[in-house]
Simulated scan of single mutants.
Amino acid sequence: MATNLKNLSDYDPTQVPSAEKMKFGIVVSEWNPVITAALMQGARDTLIKEGAKPENIIVAHVPGSFELTHGARQFIKKTDVDAVICLGCVVKGDTPHFDFVCQGVTQGITHLNVKYGKPVIFGVLTTDNQQQAIDRAGGKHGNKGDEAAITAIKMVSLNIELKEK
């Protein structure tokens, strides 16, 4: 659904399992730092609001969105997190660089999900301009970080639920 039809921060709290016993990694791109810091704060605040303990939220930074995949893989391989949230922002420019970065990070995150069976959440803004990014990082369309956190909680819950069957 298009973001202009849905606020990224809106969700039904009755449909979100408790995150009290869950552990999360958040890997954040340093590129577009005002935007990615807002995404990270949204994700962290939402995880805590839904019961995650602050000590069970580990944050790591990588230079850009392209490096999110490597950061997520390191979380999977070297920590005991239940899910990894990838947060970044790629703003379209005048060259095809935007397309290469967006395609690479999308395929990389998809590959990690398939290979490791651990939720790796795509919280990357891919916008035409800076204003669209601002609008989706706590602005008029909510915060993509909030949405990514809820997605992480729900996917960890799904893994737990299916493991119990």
Rank of each mutant, 00 (worst) to 15 (best):
D80P: 07
D80S: 15
D80L: 03
V81R: 07
V81A: 14
V81Q: 07
V81Y: 11
D82T: 09
D82F: 11
A83R: 12
A83L: 10
A83C: 08
A83W: 13
V84E: 14
V84N: 14
I85Y: 03
I85D: 10
C86M: 07
L87P: 00
L87W: 00
L87A: 04
L87M: 01
G88A: 02
G88S: 05
G88M: 04
G88N: 05
C89M: 02
V91K: 04
V91C: 01
V91D: 03
K92W: 01
K92T: 05
K92S: 05
K92N: 11
K92A: 14
G93L: 08
G93A: 11
G93M: 10
G93T: 11
G93W: 09
D94E: 15
D94W: 01
D94H: 12
T95F: 10
P96V: 13
H97C: 03
H97D: 10
F98Y: 15
F98K: 06
F98I: 03
F98P: 08
F98W: 11
D99H: 05
D99A: 06
D99K: 03
D99T: 09
D99F: 08
F100I: 15
V101M: 09
V101T: 10
V101F: 07
C102L: 13
Q103H: 12
Q103F: 05
Q103Y: 07
G104V: 02
G104E: 09
V105Q: 03
V105S: 00
T106R: 12
T106S: 15
T106G: 15
Q107G: 13
Q107V: 02
Q107S: 14
G108F: 00
